[in-house]
Write a protein that binds this DNA or RNA. Sequence first.
DNA 1: GCCGGATGTGGATACGTTTTCATGAATCTC
DNA 2: GAGATTCATGAAAACGTATCCACATCCGGC
Lengths: 332, 332
Amino acid sequence: MKMSEQRRTTIKDVAEAAEVGVATVSRVLSGTGSSSPATREKVLAAAARLDYRPSALGRNLRRRRTGGIGLLIPDITDTFYARLADGVLACAQSAGEPVMIGTTGDDPEREAELIGSLIEESVERVIAVPSGDGEMWGPAFRAGLDVVFAERPVRGREDVPAVVTDDRSGVRTAVEYLAALGHRRVAFLARHGQEQRVRAFREAMGTLALPVDEELIVRARATRDSAYAAAAGLLHHRSDLTAVLAGGNLLGEAAVLAARELDVRVPRDVSMIMFDDVPWAELCSPPLTVISQPAQDMGYRAAELVLRQGRRTRGVTLPTELIVRGSCGPRR
Amino acid sequence: MKMSEQRRTTIKDVAEAAEVGVATVSRVLSGTGSSSPATREKVLAAAARLDYRPSALGRNLRRRRTGGIGLLIPDITDTFYARLADGVLACAQSAGEPVMIGTTGDDPEREAELIGSLIEESVERVIAVPSGDGEMWGPAFRAGLDVVFAERPVRGREDVPAVVTDDRSGVRTAVEYLAALGHRRVAFLARHGQEQRVRAFREAMGTLALPVDEELIVRARATRDSAYAAAAGLLHHRSDLTAVLAGGNLLGEAAVLAARELDVRVPRDVSMIMFDDVPWAELCSPPLTVISQPAQDMGYRAAELVLRQGRRTRGVTLPTELIVRGSCGPRR
DNA sequence: GCCGGATGTGGATACGTTTTCATGAATCTC
DNA sequence: GAGATTCATGAAAACGTATCCACATCCGGC
């Protein structure tokens, strides 16, 4: 609702009330330069009395940059990205920095639009889960943005710091765990863009001398429908598989759902293991064995990186952890 | 990463390139006022050639307001609020408006800080799930913000439009459903701040001539730990109850978890019904019967309201829907 | 007691845009 | 065809801040 428009108190008002110049007020309030204790006191008192809040608008224009950080994620509804965003917010808010958020839906075009929007707003610091390839980001770098990638790097942009999970180690742990249970026909349910994990999967299978059947590597788009279709197709047509590794919580959800729908019993008929630990993994029956990823931490670290972009910094790789619950059993 | 600083192309550059005044450029580009087709053409060509993007900074300062909308939610990790945020983002992005997001953790103090931050940034339009009472919002109204509340209204601020679910109808539907199954000892697991639903619960029970036992109305804070403690306490100490109504998905999750932990079988020992439909409700066993709320729609509607705040508008109440799955059975 | 440096201060400017206002040209009206 | 009206246009002002620069004051050192 709208109230009466009353002119906002500006730095000028404070200057008059404190009987000093605006420059002095600015210096005192921003802590730059020097000022005598007496005037400092006067200014502070006047500012408090008038309930003065400096306008970010004026400051931004003068500094030619908007404070705060921009955050671009594919889907806020996916708990993984929600936790990532939560980490970013935790760090940003404790630093008093506002956060501008946008969802790309994993669509490079929308990503490009959002990047443009950030440039227009002169947001200089951006954390993004990139969906497009390097060229979407050309304008961003040309505009001088400080970018940190999260979850995935962008090939061809290795110079941009990225905070990612240790995909190779995570996948290897999962595959080794399944192999130890006797599984040989392992399927990988991946999202488009998870090529890193697919490569790691092939590598891990190879290392353990397990057969890599390319038909058991299925890709889906980042929607529930697409994930379900992929999972159902896999379970329906490939009855020789004995274990499924899902590349993310959406894929895992789809796999559990499809298994139930097709009367495939877990873990008796097929074992299941999923990337990303989520609250419902404990709720479904049997509880899901997962490779947990520190999503919130990932966001927090990315925010730290982008906030102190002073010194040249390389990316961070965060560890995964195998959490054994009840969805994997010995090969039938 | 940081690239070389090159002066951003301004409206002045475009004016020179097009051999017109800056005022004309502004008019053409913003579509205000009138201009001859010839000059319009020249300006557009020059702008395109220079790849000009108007700076939101300058515009904001001139207009004395930041575009876009501020969004304040308790917890982005709670899928309900994530879906709400998703709705807001969907509407805002299709209108080309940036969104500044903040999480309050249901803490009035943090909420007040975030409100202050929004005022400082001159964000004029705000959608909020309020945690504090009316007085937190005093400064916001004094600063002339356009506020729309979501999910919950604020008592004492009935003049502020609010987009809420039809709590009374939702609760009544749930209670009637349970009553029809023969349940009489029904517990309500509520979050602090859900007093509206608690009142509706008492009312519905009364209408059906069921006993209202205040000890069966339990409140928790908005964290998983608190929710679990409340649910476990309820199931542990009150073995005479035969049905539990959870006021939100966090509470429902806790109830399912606690029931499993305490070997309480659903629905044989106790029936369960939960506010808010979430993906995992279908995954757990038995699948959870829920009162679904249109969370994403709620966000979208709130965004619509706050964007066309031209004419005085009242709030919106959205309907709920009972989705029967497998977690409710006849009274044992 | 004069000079050089340090220190505190305020006037003025710039940031990039939108909008008001005045001006000149073009079109219309009777 | 003269006056009235519309139309397109650009110069200039404003938005609120940070910072450069010049000035004034004060101090210690010789």
